[in-house]
Design a protein around this nucleic acid. Structure first.
Lengths: 252, 252
DNA sequence: CTAGAGGTTGACGTTACGTAAAGGTCAAGG
DNA sequence: CCTTGACCTTTACGTAACGTCAACCTCTAG
């Protein structure tokens, strides 16, 4: 009692090409082969196939599926690992979506695609959606009015301070010192100090989750192309992220 | 004033291989080519390259990048479309993760394939890592001992209450009432009440940031496949989120 | 006997490069 | 002049999991 390749394909809800592929890579061999080379599968093979398709549907790769079916790997462990991977992928997509939204906002604003306003970090119109999404409208409003309330001189001074901080980060990153060096940690301290001056962020609230905010910010720097572009690529932004994380762990 | 392939690669934070690839597919040709075949790039090419890399980091494919740079496609439209794609991908991953968790649960438990543990939210072994990560080990330990301390009857009652809350949410979402309707707001109130009963969460601490916790929880419901899966997809979870946010704004 | 349905193997295409392999080019030092 | 080493070139395979021809063989029904 067995079926041709098309028949089980239909029964299991897949294609004959897939069956041939599984045969090629040794994942599922046909039960028997006719003298003409035709592949035939029995009920046991069907069960195996259904297991394979289930695991595939869950997103496991064929090598992993193979391991699980051969009992070389525990299904629970395989799925747990896969779940972790799914989480990371989701986080990655979320970061990318945030970046896209930001770029979109800046495009609608001034129409320029260039990342020239690197470290001002509070161009506000550019960050509005994200700030609101993360910290609520009140926080955005607070930060916005704080910024608007400053005079031109103050704004300029603020930006220059931010730019100097940026330059110092770049210099440190390029000098090759480690993220836990005294130099990098001093920069992290200045960075946090700078952040704390802005009202409406968790860093400035007395009971705020400064630690989470700072480390999250570091992750954002790596994910955000504007920062990466201006810190000598990913490695530079990664340096900033690591330094901030270490600092946050120690002092916040 | 131009640079060799390695030099711009370093400047722009990419690899020479990538530049050759871009040359091959006609995305970015070198400014000039030496008699020896060496590629040389000038400042204008660098700007183009940076634009390319920016769009790539946002997740656009090379053909799309090409279109945008040739002004055949509006950057805003391209990014908007991409954003939509990102959302769908996130949703897809979310559904997959939900399936994996279900399978995992049924593998660990008594082999029940049905989604019976939908709203218990405190299977604890299943949520341990996440709770610890978000609220610290103490919070987890508190919640855990609280849960362990309950008798079987109490546990059952608790679960049933949670399940009823879940069903009511679903019914409300499906009935099409708005998130700020009296019905939805009453559910939000019950939800917060339910949360407040659990020790070790900010909602139960007298000085805790209940408002931030509840709204954050709402966001999690949308992002977290476990909830989305059990609330009829994104739209259902979105309804819960909105209702909770509105309630939190008003009453917390 | 022939058409048509279904089977076979073989091989290319898909994404954006990483990674050799095999071999020119160039500046500096012996 | 020769060597060394760094840098450049082109060519081409590998990646994940099949979809999609292409060329050809086999079986069954009319």
């Amino acid at each position: 009692m067995d079926w041709s390749i098309q028949e089980i394909a239909k029964i299991a809800g897949t294609t004959s090409r897939t069956l041939r592929h599984y045969d090629d890579i040794g994942l599922l061999k046909p039960t028997r082969t006719g003298h003409n080379g035709y592949r035939y599968y029995d009920a046991a093979a069907l069960v195996q196939l259904q297991r394979i398709l289930l695991l595939r549907q869950l997103g496991l790769g064929l090598p992993t599926v193979s391991e699980v079916l051969r009992h070389e790997t525990d299904a629970v462990r395989a799925l747990s690992g896969h779940l972790e991977w799914l989480r990371q992928e989701q986080a990655r997509l979320a970061r990318q979506a945030a970046s896209v939204r930001q770029t979109l906002a800046s495009l609608k604003g001034d129409g320029e695609l260039v990342a020239e306003n690197m470290f001002d970090g509070f161009d506000h119109t550019q960050y509005k959606d994200e700030v609101e999404e993360r910290w609520g409208k009140d926080a955005y409003a607070a930060g916005d009015s704080w910024w608007r309330g400053m005079g031109a001189e103050e704004k300029k001074a603020w930006k220059q301070g931010a730019e100097k901080l940026g330059r110092d980060w770049i210099r440190a990153a390029e000098s090759g010192v480690s993220a836990d060096s005294a130099e990098a940690q001093e920069l992290a301290r200045r960075h946090v100090e700078w952040l704390t001056a802005i009202p409406g962020t968790p860093a400035s609230a007395p009971e705020g989750d400064t630690k989470g905010y700072v480390t999250g910010l570091g992750e954002m720097y790596v994910a955000d192309p504007r920062f990466a572009a201006n810190y000598g690529g990913e490695s530079g932004a990664g340096f900033v992220r690591d330094a901030l994380r270490i600092y946050a762990e120690k002092h916040l």
